[in-house]
Computed example of a mutant assay.
Amino acid sequence: EADYRALHALVREKPLGALLARDATFVPPVRTGHALETSSVLGPFLGLSCFPSDRRVPEACFPSFSAPDVEGGTSSLRLSLQVVHMALKSIATELLKNAEAKEHFFRLVAAACSLNMQRAQQYFPHAETQRLVYALEPNREEAPQLPVSTSSDGFMINLGAALLQLCEPFTAPGSPHAAKIDSTYLLSTHRLNLDKETRLCATADDVMYWLDPRNPDLRRRYLDRLAAEAVEPDPEGTPPLEVSASFGTVTEYFFLTMRVLHVGLLSSFTLYHQLAQQHHRWRTELELREAELTRMRGLGGAIPVAASALLETMEAET
């Protein structure tokens, strides 16, 4: 906590905050999310987490797995994370209030999104689960085939938590700030390049037509698609959609937060689900082994030699 207070005191002084943000280590020129987390000056502050990627945290917080210790450790972690999230929000607020630091902070968030695209891919939770389980039980899993290249779950979740708090003023129903959100942000490459993302409500042809509605070929393809779906088209002569050249702070907050949650929190939820399934399988296997051990012990001297050796092995593993 003292480290966060010290950083907050530093960035609260605008000249020092600007100096920190302009430093090369604030948004280091790296190629992977893992390198961003380990190289950025804010990496250690954003990376603090109770996720099992760092074994020291559960070992320190859960001295035993008795119900009282687990409940007490969980409550302590929740309170600690709340303190961390509040501190990160305060630090981010000071940086964003500083005209010379705001742009650099947005660049850091955009880099966290762009360099962690692998987290949004379907295979990521499976590969990450394998890596985490291998770290805990090397005998149960094969060694990971690829080195770590993405930021940790803690880094992405903490960043998302800080950004969500910054979005609170315009997430309330009827907030006048919400009207400032510029939807053309998604069509620009101002911070993020989303050209390869799957469009759920529009095709690539639709977007091209909206940008150039006077093009007859684009309009024909647009009308053909709408006719096939029995949808009423826009009237002819609709002015083209103009993508803004610059975007306000509210728009930056909204879309960067959405992207951080997409590549961070959603994949963490899937990872947690995978770990829960793994835990369920192990628990079932343990119960079956315990039942078999009880049965074999009940046989007493009637256990064959082979079964006796198996019994010793199962007792050692259990």
Rank of each mutant, 00 (worst) to 15 (best):
F26P: 03
H273Q: 10
W282P: 01
P125Y: 03
V27H: 00
Q121H: 08
S49E: 06
R107M: 06
A230E: 09
L192R: 04
L211N: 07
R119P: 09
E137F: 14
L211K: 15
D224F: 06
V231D: 02
L42M: 13
G301A: 07
A228T: 10
G73W: 12
L187C: 08
R281L: 15
E37Q: 15
R221Q: 12
L108G: 00
F26L: 04
A87M: 05
M156T: 02
R55G: 11
H190P: 03
Q130N: 13
T32Y: 08
M258S: 14
K102S: 15
L16M: 09
V148A: 11
T318F: 07
S40C: 08
Y185Q: 02
S188A: 14
V231A: 11
D54I: 01
V133R: 14
H273V: 01
T251F: 11
T284F: 01
S90T: 12
L146S: 07
L261G: 01
R281C: 13
H280M: 06
K89L: 11
S151D: 01
A202R: 06
R22H: 14
R140E: 11
R131H: 05
R214T: 14
R56V: 07
T184R: 05
A179W: 08
D212S: 12
S151G: 05
W282M: 14
F65Y: 12
T251W: 10
F269I: 09
L19S: 07
E71F: 07
L166Q: 15
E287N: 09
P216N: 04
L271S: 03
R220D: 12
A6V: 13
E142C: 07
M314T: 13
G298F: 05
A21W: 04
L36N: 00
T203H: 12
C167I: 08
L115M: 05
I181V: 15
V57L: 08
G237V: 09
C201F: 14
A230Y: 03
A92Y: 13
S244F: 03
L275P: 05
T249L: 13
P216T: 03
A135R: 10
E100C: 01
N158C: 09
V109K: 06
V41S: 09
F255E: 05
I303L: 15
V250S: 07
A179Q: 14
L288W: 02
A24L: 06
G160Y: 07
K196A: 12
E317W: 09
D195P: 05
Y134R: 03
Q122L: 09
K180H: 14
D54F: 02
V70R: 06
A307I: 02
T270K: 05
T249R: 14
T249F: 11
G43S: 02
A143M: 10
P58E: 02
E100M: 05
V148F: 04
P239N: 00
Y253D: 10
Q121F: 02
S76W: 05
A316D: 12
Q274G: 07
K89S: 13
L10M: 08
L211H: 11
Y4C: 06
R281G: 08
S183N: 08
V133M: 15
V263T: 09
Q145S: 13
L146F: 12
A112P: 00
L81C: 08
S246D: 14
F105R: 05
F255Y: 15
E317L: 13
H85L: 00
E292H: 12
P52Q: 04
R259P: 03
E287Q: 14
T203N: 12
S246K: 08
I157S: 06
A92T: 12
F269L: 13
R191S: 09
